[in-house]
Nucleic acid binder design. Sequence first.
DNA 1: GTGAATATATTAGCATGGTAGTATACAAAA
DNA 2: TTTTGTATACTACCATGCTAATATATTCAC
Lengths: 226, 226
Amino acid sequence: MELLSVPKRGASAREYVYETLRRNIILLALKPGQSLTEQEIAEKLSVSRTPVREAFIRLAQEGLLETYPQRGTVVSLIDLERVDEARFMRRTLEKAILRLACESFPQELVFELRSNLALQEVCLEERNFLRLFELDEEFHRLIYRGCKKERIWDLIAQINADFRRIRVLKLSLGIGVGEVVQQHREIAGAIFDHNAARVEELVEMHLRQNDPDFERLREEYPEYFK
Amino acid sequence: MELLSVPKRGASAREYVYETLRRNIILLALKPGQSLTEQEIAEKLSVSRTPVREAFIRLAQEGLLETYPQRGTVVSLIDLERVDEARFMRRTLEKAILRLACESFPQELVFELRSNLALQEVCLEERNFLRLFELDEEFHRLIYRGCKKERIWDLIAQINADFRRIRVLKLSLGIGVGEVVQQHREIAGAIFDHNAARVEELVEMHLRQNDPDFERLREEYPEYFK
DNA sequence: GTGAATATATTAGCATGGTAGTATACAAAA
DNA sequence: TTTTGTATACTACCATGCTAATATATTCAC
């Protein structure tokens, strides 16, 4: 098992282990269904079992791990029902948030949004899809922040973990990245123009475009799904 | 410090401590701002420090506790900004959920909803407001379950913890309980009649009625607020 | 060879001791 | 009186050993 490394940066051991595992699960360096033990991870990350255990508990609570007492711990399989529920939640909230953003959006974040879009273009040209994925998340987070709803974004990110794994699968197949950047630009444009009606359409489209690919991915990687 | 007890029921020590503390914080048996230590709670609940610590971590993640490394842990103050954000989230999602419920709602849950309403009436007559509070939560959960969106309810419950503490404060002052039961009955009626337009109004009213009381409560209990 | 009983290994849950960081009390100096 | 330095106490963080539950391998009876 190879783990992508995450910088420690003064954080506690617990935080370090948590971030490392979370990132590895979402980026599929840890495969759905793969089993882990406290001991094993503790050794790999050079910490004791306690902070590993605490990270496991948190990841289990977020649905990324499943712990079976006295037996072991496995990376959760991707659950398409849960994905549906998460996407319903996100679609619903994001439409409401973007309506707010069209009413008013703070100037300093306009700059950040534009910068983010520019970087997305670069990643697209360079075909750096993983980084593009992170910029995508950051783009949406910025909008939530502009509406003073950043906590809501954090919750969505939590419940959306399974969906994020699916997106990583899609990226690994290189499916539909160009459209995404174009849509982001249009969404930003609608915010700047205070065009609430238009933004609602755009969000609906943006968040629904992944729909048809689920079954295909499931056929491609059946062992990752529940 | 007196803790309301919670039955153990075969759960792990960690779960037991978590449930006990959570309940005590929300019902304000543990006051906002009050400080706790692992040691102290471990002794009171007759477990070791480990499960207490793990429960603390989870409660801190949910915003009910704040942990300052090497200094201590305190029960979070009620944060009205966070409350606003949580209520925005709930209003937005609950309207969408209730529209779904008006389209179709499973028969077996109709029965449960009616039973719940009947119990609410009893609690109202008996002035058992704490139990009524729990039935209220259960009422809404049932609706989410009927739409296969129970996970979303759980997230809302999490982010709503501060709002729940406010409601407990209100109940302790005996403010506006009669209306709530009446509104629940109307909401259920609208679901059974598939009246989506009506239900949206009702939800808006139901979830907004608490608005004006915040400042009053803040004056009454300034030490509980941030 | 098959099935039951038993031993062994493995795991997460839990208890407990040590550590480092922080606040507090108090004494000494100004 | 005020400030500064120091000792003390207290805390959460982390390491580690033990326990109980479970899965697997082995032995034995038939």
